[in-house]
Design a protein around this nucleic acid. Structure first.
Lengths: 226, 226
DNA sequence: TTAGTTTGTAACAAAAATGTAACATTTAAA
DNA sequence: TTTAAATGTTACATTTTTGTTACAAACTAA
């Protein structure tokens, strides 16, 4: 997944949360805390999608939207509007401001992600790919397949999830705790050594002759792709 | 599915959305943002069907329609009219402008597709094929028949729906939950193991000697065609 | 260097997922 | 009604996956 997303939202905690998660998913993210700055930075950033809060300190979401539709350089920018409960949702949705989708706060990140994908898929199909790639490694989330050097590799379920996790931020080093949290089902307790064993299994699976090792061990810290 | 569809609609986001999805479904699509241009390009493009917005900046949908009916070269072109909510739907539909069908915005793409198929089926039966195909497997939705390697195969109702579901996105892996949601009638509760059994029955039915297995098991994830 | 820590590896047993057949119940057809 | 077809469920066999352990190897710091 790749693509640029801009956020205009006056609540810093929401920005932080969303931005962090989007980046984890491979998006490039920038943001503004108010409408006027947002409109300016928007044009510089040239995003593929805009997350827009309905209530802002200066301009309303609708006004920003209208501004965007008038501006030829960003006329077709897809917009997902964030509205707080109680903001008379029906009224808002009724207004034809050219918004592509709406999301009512509070929302889960998964919801948001689903909407983003849907919107991007129709506006800019190339932006959304459910393939994760790194060097000659390709992981297809839809078909649940993994290829190295174009040749398919068979992975067990945990190996698959493990690799998927690493591929989101390939070069980042993850501690065993982080890996556990993200790759294993919640609340399940396994020894930290278990990870080592699965790393070993994954290594065995994705290694092919004459090709360099893809998983790096960072002593006393964890593992990463490399 | 094949055939040419022309769109006259002044909202670029709708055009983009509809066009992309129609193309994904095998149609050839062209469009105009206003009525006058639309009428000209229409004649060049020679579509099998026209999607026509009711409210346009210059001509109204009705006027365009009248123009078309007067023009011998495109006299019988089927038209689906798109109307926004609040445009006094009843009044519009009452007018005998020779429109074949109406659709009120906002509409889902599935709705639109269903209407398009219906209209095309009666105007130009050869344009619409409701066959799903994958490798040597053919599923005919109209006649409810399935063929493998040109020879007909008998499937039970659930087997048929199951196969139909897989054939829409053949290589995609679906979880048991997803299969349940899409293949079984809503709100019906069946054990997840039930799916396995039906998969097994489907496999038995569609397998023929010396041919590779068509259903892939992805352990701990689900099933897909392959 | 040496001792202590960390990691790689293989083996094994336990647990989980899946394939298969059989059976009872429901539904549809004749 | 009678008969056949379709369906959901269960039980059991088989395969795959998983966690853990034990030991070897590699690394680090003094």
């Amino acid at each position: 997944m790749n693509g640029k997303i801009f956020i205009i939202e006056d609540e810093p905690s929401i920005i932080q949360l969303v931005q962090h998660n989007l980046e984890k998913n491979g998006f490039l993210v920038s943001s503004s805390l108010n409408g006027n700055d947002g409109l300016k930075e928007l044009k510089k950033f040239q995003p593929d999608l805009l997350l827009l809060d309905w209530m802002l300190p200066d301009l309303s979401g609708i006004e920003i939207c209208k501004n965007i539709r008038k501006d030829n350089s960003i006329k077709n920018l897809p917009v997902i509007m964030l509205t707080a409960k109680g903001e008379e949702e029906d009224k808002i949705k009724g207004l034809d401001s050219g918004v592509d989708d709406y999301l009512t706060k509070p929302f889960s990140f998964n919801e948001l992600m689903a909407r983003i994908k849907a919107v991007l898929r129709r506006s800019n199909p190339n932006t959304v790919s459910d393939n994760l790639e790194f060097e000659d490694l390709v992981l297809d989330r839809i078909e649940k397949r993994v290829y190295r050097d174009k040749k398919e590799i068979q992975l067990g379920p945990t190996e698959f999830r493990l690799l998927e996790f690493f591929l989101v931020n390939p070069k980042r080093v993850y501690s065993r705790d982080q890996i556990l949290e993200n790759v294993w089902p919640n609340n399940i307790n396994v020894e930290s050594r278990t990870i080592d064993v699965h790393i070993r299994r994954l290594r065995k699976s994705i290694n092919i002759q004459n090709k360099k090792e893809l998983i790096r061990t960072v002593r006393s810290s964890g593992y990463s792709l490399i």
